[in-house]
Amino acid sequence: MKVLVPVKRVVDYNVKVRVKADGTGVETANVKMSMNPFDEIALEEAVRLKEAGKATEIIAVSCGVQASQETLRTALAIGADRAVLVQTDAELQPLAVAKLLCAVAKKENPTIVLMGKQAIDDDCNQTGQMFAALMGWAQGTFASKVIVDGDKVSVTREIDGGLETVSLKLPAAITVDLRLNEPRYVTLPNIMKAKKKPLEVLAPDALGVDITPRIATLKVEEPPKRKAGVKVPDAKTLVEKLKNEAKVIQ
C-alpha cells in the first residue's frame, strides 16, 4: 500500500510575519521556512502506518519553488521513501495544487493520500477536499484517529459537536488535525540517509495542469491595531454602546 503525503513549505510558525511594504504579500526574504506543521503530522502518521506494516511505501510530494526541496529532504529524513517536487515559481492556489496532486496521484496510484487539514500560511483548508472531489475519492477531514482495516479506513474526525467516526472505502484522502499524533524529531543518521533517497523534479506543464490563479489578490495589509478601551459610567451606557457603536446586540 502506497501512501502519498503532500507537504508544503511555509513560513516557520515561530516567525512573526510582516506585510511587505508594497502590500503584495508577506515578507519571506531572510525568513525561516519549514514544513507546514499539519503536514508533519500527516507524514508522521504515514511513517507509523509503515512501521505497523500497513504501508509499504511513502512518497512525499511538494508543489512550489526550488527551495521546497529542503522541505522534502526533511520529509525524507522523517521517513518518506522518496520525494516528488512539482517545481514552479508561479503563485499556487489550492485548486491548482489539488489538480497537480491529482496528476501525481494518477501517476503513483497511492491507496491513501494523507495531508494537513490546512497550511498555516494561508489557512485555506481547501486542498484536501478539492483533491478528493477531483479524484472522485472518499474523504475524511480533520482526522484525530486513523485505523486502516483491509480495504477500508476508519477516520475519527474533530467536528464542532465532538468526534465523528466515518468509515471510508479505499482509496481515500485524509486531512489531519493537531491531535492525531506527536511528530518525532528527525534523527542525525536519517538526515544522512535522506540525502541518498530519490527526489524527482517535475514541471506543471509536463503534468498537463493549468495552474493559472483563479483568484486575484488585491491587497494585503496588517490587521488593525487594537484600540484602547473606554470606561463607561453605568450598564445603560454599556448596552447603548454595544447596540449603536459595536453593533453586537440589537
Binding site: 516557520d12 515561530n14 516567525v15 512573526k16 510582516r18 515578507e27 531572510n30 525561516k32
Partner: peptide, 14 residues
Amino acid sequence: SKPISIQSMLLSRR
C-alpha cells in the same frame, strides 16, 4: 527595527 526572523530567545540564527 522589529525582529524579522525567528524570535528565538536562545540564540540568533542569523
